[in-house]
Design a protein around this nucleic acid. Structure first.
Length: 106
DNA sequence: ACTTTGACGACTG
DNA sequence: GCAGTCGCCAAAG
């Protein structure tokens, strides 16, 4: 345990708790981690996190109420994210979106 | 202590 | 529907 708990460590803790085959949006992670509207900070934390230390692929961008989408700007990383999620059972619709009522974590 | 930087999100044209 | 802008907030330089 870090002697001083930062927003950074709280974010990673939340992401690590997302079950396999489920996803959360950046905003939802921020809220659970006690950041309020700090959705951007979640992205910042994941970017800085050591690779393999956290299931980063389960964090997606919001795409309207009840839907999530791959929101990462880098197209290569985006394709990898989608691949990883489909491998664990997450289904994308024809427009590349994921139904949060089926795969989202409350 | 101040400025820049974003794996975001809501809003605008 | 896509691109640009703005508000948000912690971390990095």
């Amino acid at each position: 345990m870090p002697s001083r708990e930062t927003a950074f460590t709280r974010i990673l803790a939340v992401v690590r708790k997302i079950p396999r085959g489920r996803v959360m949006t950046y905003g939802a992670v921020a809220r659970v981690a006690g950041l309020g509207r700090g959705a951007r900070v979640v992205g910042y934390a994941l970017r800085a996190a050591p690779s393999g230390s956290v299931p980063w692929q389960r964090v997606m961008g919001l795409a309207g109420p009840g839907w999530a989408r791959v929101s990462i700007r880098d197209p290569l990383a985006g394709a990898i994210q989608r691949q990883l999620l489909e491998k664990e059972g997450v289904v994308f619709d024809g427009r590349g979106r994921v139904d949060l009522s089926r795969f989202g974590r409350k």
